[in-house]
Amino acid sequence: MDSPQSNLLGEGAAQAFETQSQACGRMGSPFMEKLCALIAQNGFASGAVFDRINHWNGTIGNGGDAVPLRLAGAFHRLVLDGADAGLKSVYPPNNSSDAELLSAVNQAVIKHADFILEYLKSAPQTNEVGRSALLLPAFLSLNAQYGIPFSLFEIGSSAGLNQNLPHFHYDYGSWQWGDVASPVQLNCEWRGEQPPVTNGDLHFSKVQGCDLAPVPISTDKQRMKLASYVWPDQTERYERLSGALALASKFAPAVDACQAAEWLGEKLSTAPEYGVHSIVMHTVMWQYLSKDDQALCEAHINAFGARAHARAPVSWLRFEADDNSPSGALTLTHFDGESKTPRTSILARADFHGRWIEWSPNLGKA
């Protein structure tokens, strides 16, 4: 059948796809770079999906609703489910011309419009476990300093897969840590200063998290949705996700359905537990909160930290985007119970999918 003709997107939508294309290229996905660039330059077939995206009610780009990734996730899900032979034939590991890929996209947005419109309602959720490789050095540093168990409070948990970071194996090239038999093998290039003290285990007395819309992972269908947001040509990320899901069946993550500020207000309402290091953690979710919610979360963390003790320290550990693109900042705010004010510093800069980390605990204040 002849492919429907493409229709150009408006400037705002086209720019969102172009920006996403560039980001995907920087993060090692030539296929996603190509897909988003083609849509930015050519648009796609007119219809309900075109209208929905071209007149998006909100911030369309990756700093807001990440619509290009929502659409890409829908296409990939059709491929994974075997629901669209045309898309599958032009998706990795197959090679395709620009014309073939655009033709398959044009047909898919018409043939599967209802399915795609439903997918566009959900923010992309990769629950990228590669980011645990960025968090681990901070945990090891704090463990060497205090030598007491951690109590973890994670906001924006998605499916909670990163809560199992003590069960992963990490290879930084110059040093390793963790269970060599783990189904999750994380390879992260180590740059910069010497690593923290790497001997010893990490102990967690309690692990809990929240998400506005937790990603269920109890069925194959639910797990497939997570997989759909992994970029199709990044097989190593698939392997990590598969291993993390296997671990989650053994060590079930704890994720409450709740707004972050509300949840922190409840969980941090009492004094920090004595003999435990309380950690508030999040990765690449802060940008999705409103300014008011960010302020509320920070107020709850600061109030909790103000009650810290030398044997009940509090840390706020996060890996988030900042103004220094294309990498993100691993930032730590520490309440030791002795200093009058907390200390905030950038521990490292790193790749958003955990491909490399440049460790420099003295990098400066955030």
Rank of each mutant, 00 (worst) to 15 (best):
F115S: 08
Y119E: 15
E100Q: 15
D98N: 15
N164V: 06
S122H: 15
R70P: 01
F75P: 01
N164A: 15
Y119C: 15
T126F: 02
L161G: 01
L120F: 00
T126S: 11
R70M: 08
H169K: 06
A99N: 12
E118T: 13
F75V: 13
L117R: 12
E154R: 03
L69K: 05
P124G: 06
L71T: 04
F168W: 00
R131V: 01
P149V: 06
S157D: 03
P124W: 05
L165C: 11
E118G: 05
R77F: 10
N94M: 10
L101H: 02
P92A: 09
L161C: 08
L78I: 12
Y91R: 10
H167Q: 14
S158H: 07
Y119R: 14
S157A: 15
S89C: 05
L135I: 14
R131T: 09
V129W: 04
T126A: 04
S103A: 13
H76A: 09
I148S: 03
H76Q: 14
E128V: 08
A113E: 10
I155T: 08
H112I: 06
P93C: 04
G147T: 12
A144W: 02
F115Q: 06
G160C: 09
G160V: 12
F139A: 01
P124Q: 12
K88C: 08
A133I: 10
G73C: 10
Q125P: 11
D98T: 09
N106S: 10
A104P: 04
S97P: 12
N143M: 11
F115M: 13
L87C: 11
H167V: 01
L140K: 15
T126W: 03
L69A: 13
N164P: 08
L102H: 09
S122M: 13
L80E: 12
F153L: 12
Q145E: 15
D114P: 04
I148Y: 04
E128L: 13
P92C: 10
A123H: 14
V79K: 04
N94S: 13
V129P: 08
Q125A: 13
D84T: 03
S89E: 10
